[in-house]
Amino acid sequence: MKVAYWPGCVSRGFTPELHGSMAKVAPLLDIELVELDRACCTGAGVIAEHNQELADTLNARTFALAQQEIGRGADLMMNICSTCQGAQAECQERLDASGEYRDHVNELLEPEGLRYEKGISNKHFLWLMVEEIGLETIASKVQRPLTDLRVGPFYGCYIVRPTDRLGIDHDQPRDRYLQRLIETLGGTVVDYAGAYKCCGFPIITMNKEASLKQAGRHLGDAIDAQADCLVTPCPLCHLNLDLQQPVAQKLVGRPLGMPVLHLPQLVGLALGLDPNELGMGKHIVRPTSVIDWTTSVVAGVGATA
């Protein structure tokens, strides 16, 4: 399968291990990544907050670039960031709702020879694995089942709400895919309070305390539910949950030390890749703090931070 791939900004910035691990995992799942390197940031909701039309136009441009790749044989467009997925879905909802508005936006794209046609298929890697590749196929590729690994899903707001915009319903329970995937990879799903909550990242520069109290609370809830690690499809959540975990720890007044994996890292481990190859040494809270798991799965990574 060939996809027009939008990696996002943070996966090439402060969480380089996400982009890196995706590149390692893709060939194992027979995904060919065609990177949309001329595209720009989705705005992560902030550009839309500033000027809705600007965000819609920039994302329409990205969609148009992806549609060019689709014209050359790509099957659909793919994201690896919940926030990108949600921000783009919001713009696509408006663009697809009104022909007049779409024409107006397309006028702005015309000088570059681009045009967005209604109805692009744009899926997060998580959705793509379940809906396009299929969990049975993924199960058949598992080399090293995550036996006894207790994994807490952490979705990130943008990929679970609003449900109607994201196409989540009884027939397409995209808000259960992480759980299904964890089970497919041989792991155990941990049910804890924070799975669908907010990591707090959007307000980190405005109200740092409220922001990191959210992250700290969910990490604490996961510890109380005896999770070995969390997995997230969102690199911005990863910033608050992992990079900022030492600060969150102080704010919630309890030791945390909860490793947080990016989605392709978890998949990569089960598919037999080496933890170092997946960039696990780059985390602030090293995944080796996972006790029962270290000897079998991530023995290659150095000691706990």
């Binding site: 949600g86 707001c157 709400r161 609003p162 909550k197 907010c198 959007p202 307000i203 405005m206 109200n207």
Partner: peptide
Amino acid sequence: YDCTHCFN
């Protein structure tokens, strides 16, 4: 500016 944009 205290809204964390969670869509809940």
